[in-house]
Design a protein around this nucleic acid. Sequence first.
DNA 1: CTTTATGGCTACCGGCGAGTATATCGCGGC
DNA 2: GCCGCGATATACTCGCCGGTAGCCATAAAG
Lengths: 216, 216
Amino acid sequence: MATRKPQKKIAAAPTTELWQTPDERARDREKKRYAVILTAARCFRERGYHNTSIDDVARILNVTKPTIYHYVENKEQLLFECFRTGLNQIMEAFEEIKGSQANALERLTMVMRRYAEAIASDFGWCMVQAENQDLSAAMSKKVRALKSEIDQGIRRLIKEGALDGSIRKCDAKITAFALAGAMNWIAYWYRPGGSLTPSQIAERFLELFRLGLEQR
Amino acid sequence: MATRKPQKKIAAAPTTELWQTPDERARDREKKRYAVILTAARCFRERGYHNTSIDDVARILNVTKPTIYHYVENKEQLLFECFRTGLNQIMEAFEEIKGSQANALERLTMVMRRYAEAIASDFGWCMVQAENQDLSAAMSKKVRALKSEIDQGIRRLIKEGALDGSIRKCDAKITAFALAGAMNWIAYWYRPGGSLTPSQIAERFLELFRLGLEQR
DNA sequence: CTTTATGGCTACCGGCGAGTATATCGCGGC
DNA sequence: GCCGCGATATACTCGCCGGTAGCCATAAAG
């Protein structure tokens, strides 16, 4: 069997960007797909789902409608992807605190900070809006399941707080609703460039929830 | 001048319902108009604004599309009326506490109870949803103005609380946002027949806001 | 008895927008 | 050098739905 001479590693010529390896191409596609989703999310947030046509999204990206359909199956899928992208950010927040030694109240605060950032992001509107209408039964079910996971995560933190003594004993369900409501509502009033960053908003909210309104 | 003989009051014959006085007719029209608005509100809440056609609303009322247009100018107007109807309920709550001797925290609680009821009503969805999109610039402006009134009302109560000592000194703006967010979010999860009435939900929320999360 | 107003209907228009059939162009693999 | 495929474009279809024109029935008004 003829063995090939050992070859020296040769530095890539400056033409590298002109030809792409298969996985470069794949990454490229993924980037474009993301651009589609991000652009859609911005449109949805600004004008709403129904007031945004696929043509609108395409125009912003300087392409035409069929190109969009090359990256997503249909409009509903597009909304779902926006939703999922945003939600993942919150999921990650829960991952991050997994190993933390901090008490439950502190961990809740960390999660809420990330939560606020996600809600204030371009995907925030979709996260809050999706499921309610506009989604097929199957999709809606998926979305509800994902949202429920978040909800359960928050409730768990509240219950853990009751155990480790960092949080007053209270109804986890209703408390989680109040907390999530305050947070989700950010999507309706927050605009980038305001006086507070999303993280700061979460900070203030949590301070309020911690200390309560009552004078003492 | 020939004076007519004094006439005995004659009991209305059972045919009374067959002929209507002008103001009976007017009231009738008003009732029908309200039915249109209420039905629309229910549709919007269930399926969303864009997934509800005027034909849908008409069908439920056993009439046809042009009949709907006999009571409202157009679809946008219909959404606006739904919004206004719901909002009025909250406005009334502020009226009610005008003469109250209770301290600010108690007054805030009263308003929030009514607020929760309004949000949980058929009009809740429209109140929360309207303005954001789907409304012309002019309408949107009106809606924003009305919403702002509510917001200012809440902030005022919070500030008054800081003065009369019933509420801890805190940022009225951010506190009002948190409060309104928790409340508005009810529209997304509340369904009639749950274990808590809207008023009870408000009660629990306020308890949470009053006492805070922190163990002490 | 006629007139007019009111409330409703049938039947239509027109536009928008989701989604598609089909062509093109260029690159990478055989 | 040709084939195939990925990416994009042009140019459509088609259904839905907001809104309207115009007719009809009933009943109050004169």
